[in-house]
Amino acid sequence: MSEPHILLSGETLALAMPRADMLPEYHKWENDPATILGYGNQWAQAWEVRAAGYERQRGNDRFQQFEVVRLDDGTPVGMTILEVNTYVRTAEFVMVLAPAERGKGHAAEATRLTLDWAFHLAHLRAVWLKVLEPNKAGISAYEKAGFRSAGRLRRSGFWLGKPVDELIMDAVPEDFPEPSAVAATFGD
């Protein structure tokens, strides 16, 4: 495995460039049953589909991916993605954590670092996400990072085979909780 190329460091985690040699690991995370449950998907994705998608995404400036790594040892713990709408300068936020790294408090810091990048380097006006209502841990992590409730799509998702609401959450720069890792790195 290659060494991570760190882009932005937080307290315990950092955002890094995604690595092609990590693609098989990312694929495992994305196809873990708990990940599929949280996304509301029904099926695992074939390796060939994921590999082809990675090639298309690499040159797409509207699909910004970050590998999330632990600072103490460089171990990858997840991915965050900003699906950018360049016309209105907003983005949809998506995150996946490695199954072994869930429940360790990484989600809030990874989300916060990605919002910091979005607002202070990419100059986005807003970032939004959808989360299934039963995903209480995800909702809590997103709120800690600065997301606020913005609405709901009734019965638009599935959780354990039952229709559930998807909550829409958003964040704007004014919601971003200080301190900023970008400002700490590059000055106010």
Rank of each mutant, 00 (worst) to 15 (best):
A183Y: 11
R62Q: 13
R154W: 04
K28E: 15
L167Y: 10
N135F: 02
P76A: 15
L15V: 05
V49H: 07
E143W: 03
A14T: 05
L15W: 04
P33I: 07
D116F: 01
V164I: 03
T35Q: 12
K144E: 08
T12L: 03
G38A: 14
L121T: 10
A118R: 07
P134L: 07
Y87V: 12
Q57K: 10
G78C: 06
F176H: 11
W159N: 08
G161E: 06
A184E: 15
A91L: 03
R19N: 06
L13M: 05
R125S: 08
L13V: 02
D175H: 15
G38K: 05
E143V: 11
A137D: 07
A100N: 03
A108H: 04
D116W: 09
A46M: 08
A14L: 04
A150L: 05
W29Y: 06
A118S: 06
N85Q: 11
M22W: 12
S180C: 13
D61M: 02
T75R: 15
G138A: 15
G38N: 14
T80W: 11
S2E: 14
W128I: 00
A108D: 03
N41M: 10
D72I: 05
G59K: 09
P76N: 10
L124R: 05
Q65R: 14
L97V: 07
T111M: 04
E83W: 00
L124H: 07
F147M: 10
A181D: 03
E11D: 14
P99F: 08
H123S: 12
M79W: 01
P33Y: 03
V172A: 09
D21G: 05
D73I: 09
L13Y: 02
E30G: 10
P76Y: 08
T80H: 09
Y26Q: 04
A141W: 08
K130F: 09
